[in-house]
Simulated assay, not measured.
Amino acid sequence: MITLITFAPSFGQPAASPFCIKAIWLLNMSGLAWTREDTADPRSMPKQKLPAIRVNDQIIPDSENIRSYLESQGADFDAGLSDMEKSTSRAFIRMAEEHMYFHVVMDRWGDDDVWPIIRDTYFAAIPKLLRGMITNKLRQTLMRGMHAQGLGRFTPQERLDRLEADLQAITTRLWHGPFLFGDRPTAADASVAAMLANMRATPGKTLMKMRIAEDEILCRYIDRASDAMNQPVSAASATLCA
């Protein structure tokens, strides 16, 4: 049995992190049996991040490593895709995980109106008297990292302008079908839709959150992906899909 170690659900999503949601959706699509174990503290994990899976006595960290493990067990998340489509899929995954993700971070950790909600949700296990002091240090460290990364130097409007081309690329792909590469979700949807879902679920009314929430095409896509991938696929169905 595979055990997914993940952050708990928050803001209407199956986990606080889009990478944890991606792992949940990949596990469901794999057709393999699994269970989940929620934690708020990833420091004992090999990379000190979540998600991770436990298989027997082995811990496999990182959503991309989880995908590789599931594929080694027979899962084929890109069944039926051409080599060109698989290349495009890889680019969409990197766009979501190496660019769009940092916009989520800035919206949740960098916005002074949103941060108190994030703090009290993510760090509820820390006693309230200590929570502010501990989390403020974490926030300062993270924001220094975002400044070094680059997005931390931009205003919210500048960030939204930078993100717009990504959203347009996703919308263009969706003119081809209900999912990025046709009639059923693939690995790219597990990354892209999870990221969009987290953007839309962010508390408050940030510019980015409202851009997603007011886009009918993207909202319908998020909802389709969530409906399709939140439910486990039977092993027999997964074999047929592959």
Rank of each mutant, 00 (worst) to 15 (best):
T6C: 10
C241T: 10
W109N: 03
G74N: 08
D215M: 09
P42G: 06
A16S: 05
R159E: 02
S234D: 03
M229W: 01
A238V: 08
A187I: 09
N136A: 08
D120N: 13
I222T: 03
F11L: 00
A169R: 12
N28K: 05
F179P: 02
A228E: 06
L70M: 10
W25A: 00
Q168S: 12
G150H: 01
C241D: 07
E98F: 12
I59Y: 11
F181P: 00
L130P: 03
L160N: 09
A165C: 07
D120L: 05
I134H: 05
S191L: 04
P232C: 09
R211A: 15
S89P: 09
V192G: 03
D41E: 05
F92N: 01
M143P: 06
D223H: 02
S63I: 08
T186R: 10
S226G: 07
R173H: 15
Y122V: 14
C20R: 03
I24N: 02
L50F: 13
M199T: 08
T88C: 12
W25R: 07
M106G: 04
R119L: 04
T206E: 11
F179K: 02
L142D: 07
A169S: 11
L167K: 05
D111P: 07
G177N: 05
R153A: 11
W175G: 14
L4Q: 02
D215N: 15
S82H: 06
F181Q: 09
I21G: 05
D111Y: 02
G12H: 12
R36P: 00
H99N: 06
M146P: 13
A187H: 03
H147Y: 11
I93K: 08
R153C: 07
R162F: 08
D215E: 01
L160Q: 14
L138W: 01
A23D: 00
F11Y: 15
I66Y: 01
D76F: 05
I53D: 03
P46M: 10
H99T: 12
T141A: 14
T35V: 09
N230Y: 03
R54C: 10
S68G: 09
Q149L: 10
I60V: 15
I126V: 08
L27V: 04
D78L: 02
D183Q: 11
M195E: 04
T202Q: 09
S237R: 10
E97Q: 00
A228V: 00
P232D: 01
T35D: 04
C20K: 06
M195F: 01
A79I: 10
S30D: 04
L167V: 06
R184L: 06
M106L: 14
F123G: 07
P185W: 00
L130Y: 04
Y221M: 00
Q231W: 08
A197S: 11
P156K: 13
R131I: 10
H147M: 14
L163A: 01
T239Q: 13
E85W: 02
G12Q: 04
I59D: 03
